[in-house]
Simulated assay, not measured.
Amino acid sequence: MPGTVNRVLLALVGLVLLAVGGAVLAVGLGVRAPSWWLHDGPHDRLLTAAERTRWRADAWWWPTVIAVLALLVLLALWWLTAVLRRRRLGELLVDTGDGAGALLRGRALEGVLAGEAGRLDGVAHAQVALTGSREAPAARVRLLLEPHVDPATALDHLTARALVHARESAALAKLPAEVRMRGTGHKAQRVS
């Protein structure tokens, strides 16, 4: 969902900027502007001196301008951090029992878990991504099931075998998982 929202917002902002920029460029190159447009020709100013200095003497003007600009900067920073935030877990903290602990690469556990899930009966392909924190990871598992497999049986095998092995090998108290399954099958065809 955040990826979709991000794409829609970027598309809207891009379209607005492209439309306004293209219109200003066209008017600047001499294309006749519609009557409702902000300026009439290439030598017309967007704001007159009176319009630019109209509210400078009012006490609310500068605090409002600064607040709006600060809000825009904060929103842009929030958006940037949301886009750059890592979705996958880089490493896990494994309790070794001696009080020191060890770090396990998230990709390594993802690969082992995906390999074991892919070897289950009836699973054509498996993908795993670890999310959460180093101390409390969670797994997102996607399974591509063959047509003859019962999804409940595949889920039971996944939770009883692959997820238990991953949880025990990483010495985790729990490893919650979100499992999404999709079947490989032939698309329906119209028969006459």
Rank of each mutant, 00 (worst) to 15 (best):
V20T: 02
V27K: 01
A26T: 04
L25W: 12
V31W: 05
G41M: 09
A19D: 03
S35N: 07
A26L: 11
D44P: 02
D40I: 00
L18C: 06
L17E: 15
D40K: 08
H39R: 15
L17F: 15
H39C: 12
L15D: 08
D40V: 06
W37D: 13
V13Y: 14
L47A: 13
W36Q: 09
L17N: 13
L46T: 05
R32V: 06
P42H: 12
G30D: 03
V24R: 10
V27I: 07
G14L: 01
L46R: 11
G21K: 04
L17M: 12
G28P: 00
L29K: 11
L25Q: 08
V31R: 09
G14M: 02
V13R: 15
V13C: 15
G22Y: 00
A26K: 09
A26W: 03
L38E: 11
S35R: 15
R32G: 09
R45H: 10
R32N: 05
L29H: 08
L47E: 10
H39V: 04
G30E: 04
V20P: 02
G21H: 06
G22R: 01
A19G: 01
P34D: 00
L38K: 09
L29P: 00
G28K: 03
V20R: 14
L18E: 10
A19C: 02
L17S: 14
L18Y: 03
L15K: 15
L46C: 09
G14E: 10
V24K: 14
L29S: 05
G22Q: 02
W37V: 01
G21C: 01
H43E: 11
D44G: 10
P34S: 03
W36M: 02
L46E: 08
G22P: 00
L15Y: 07
H39Q: 12
L38Y: 05
A26G: 10
L18I: 01
V13G: 15
L17K: 12
A33P: 00
W37I: 06
A23I: 05
V20W: 09
G22M: 04
A33C: 00
L15F: 12
A19V: 11
G22L: 04
A19R: 13
V16T: 06
G14Y: 10
L47Y: 13
L47Q: 12
R45T: 14
S35E: 03
G28C: 01
L15S: 13
P42Y: 13
P42E: 08
H43D: 14
L47T: 15
L18S: 05
V24D: 10
G21A: 12
V27C: 05
G22C: 02
G28E: 01
G14W: 11
S35G: 03
A33E: 01
V31C: 04
L29Y: 09
W37F: 06
L25E: 09
L47G: 09
